[in-house]
Design a protein around this nucleic acid. Structure first.
Lengths: 249, 249
DNA sequence: GAATTTCCCGCACAAAAACGCAGAAAGCCG
DNA sequence: CGGCTTTCTGCGTTTTTGTGCGGGAAATTC
């Protein structure tokens, strides 16, 4: 096999799989590892691939996996927030969890909106407090320093006392098999209570969280009414959820 | 799995869920915890994540910071706060109102102190949350936007359920004839509840507030155990209060 | 305070890379 | 065709890198 041929093959593989291992390449092409290494070196010098110990990665790898900063997902969260806000109307009682997406929503609430927001999340409450016309109800109990939210039996009991029109859940992970999952036991308990106290449950989450799983289960897909991501409703990623009976926006 | 790949995966997880546990990562990726820890270390060195004991956090998940702004007579409040802190010992249940003096006290709490603080004041809760060893209980209810405190029947009912060792009241006005007075009906109701739920009541206030009156009465001098100002205990201004049976510090 | 978990450090080992070298193949030229 | 250079490849050897392990320090939890 000619040198150029080999390099073209390598480049093809890299672009296909985003990565190659020198060890597997030298088996496929039946040449010594040195040869592969020299090829990788040349391709790396030309900027076609990124050479790493043990193989090489696609140059787009960095963009794909290392989002340079929060601006990108910040924009997505604003998109989600504005879709969520469309569901709110005057006079509603709204239960919300915490999380960055919820905070974003709180910041974007239109100033003339009159509604009642109920939450145990300190950062969320701080945002709601800044609004001129909304009534803010804090769910009290012990504060989890980690999640900056009130947790415990008392909090759950308080939530159960309300019947909210709508509940917005910041979502850490959602997938078809397990539904909504999260990684903090106490937060999960809280979310369960919020779900059972609301007429309508809306999950907010960027699309990256779709089809990911966390250790603790919050609820199944049948318990949620709507899923909001930054994607358009007809995105194929969301199709299975629509098929499972979840409204998508 | 390549090292870079692994790090990209970790970073992805951190950005997605705001936190990762080294223990769960090493199970997912099937490498030793040391390797994970080294990866976390490298990513932390690059500023991509914040390493903490047991895992890592997203750098964008920063906490709400409360500016130590130019509240007037800051120094006096610090003096008061340090006197108040002398009354606290490990294991105590402490009920506090809001107010700048209370905030100052919260900031000066010694890091090794282990106690439980109960309050309905958002700014106070924010300060308590930053402390490593204290348990924080939030009193929930409707939030009064101008006093940044939870008020209402629910809040009062919650306060009545506790029996605190000591209660610190930020004091707006105190005089011999009317005792403690204030200018917000709902806050007054709250303070009354706090007083009746505590074994010991301590009023914190700068000396300017001594011998001043506000429209609504909280309680008489006989209901308070101690008055703390920035003045020395033997200051003549405070003599009448001592004569009335109030401890002065 | 004691027990447990997590972290940090040095070490060992394995995998991979770098380097020098030699031989083979191909190209160039008189 | 022979001699020469150039390019490419593979093979040891040495270095570097990555990983896991054990022990002790530090932090965390109860």
């Amino acid at each position: 096999m000619l040198k150029k041929e080999r390099q073209a093959y390598i480049l093809h593989q890299v672009n296909l799989h985003n990565k190659v291992l020198s060890s597997s390449l030298c088996q496929e092409i039946r040449v010594s590892e040195d040869t592969i290494r020299r090829d990788l070196q040349e391709l790396a010098d030309e900027g076609k691939i990124i050479k790493v110990h043990g193989g090489a990665l696609s140059p787009s790898f960095n963009q794909v996996y290392f989002p340079t900063n929060g601006v990108y997902s910040q924009q997505n969260k604003k998109t989600i927030a504005s879709k969520a806000i469309d569901l709110i109307s005057n006079g509603m009682f709204i239960l919300t969890s915490g999380g960055t997406t919820i905070i974003e929503m709180a910041r974007m609430l239109p100033p003339q909106l009159k509604a009642t927001f109920i939450s145990g999340s300190i950062p969320a409450i701080l945002e709601y407090m800044h609004h001129p016309n909304i009534e803010v109800i804090m769910i009290g109990d012990r504060i989890s320093k980690n999640s900056k939210i009130t947790v415990g039996a008392q909090a759950i009991a308080r939530i159960k006392e309300v019947k909210a029109d709508i509940c917005f859940l910041g979502t850490n992970a959602i997938d078809l098999e397990n539904g909504i999952t999260d990684n903090d036991w106490e937060v999960v308990e809280l979310k369960k209570a919020m779900i059972s106290s609301s007429k309508k449950v809306v999950c907010l989450g960027i699309s990256e969280k779709v089809n990911s799983v966390q250790p603790i289960r919050v609820c199944g897909l049948q318990d949620i009414d709507m899923l909001i991501t930054e994607l358009p409703a007809n995105d194929p990623l969301l199709k299975p959820y629509q098929d499972a009976g979840v409204l998508v926006a």
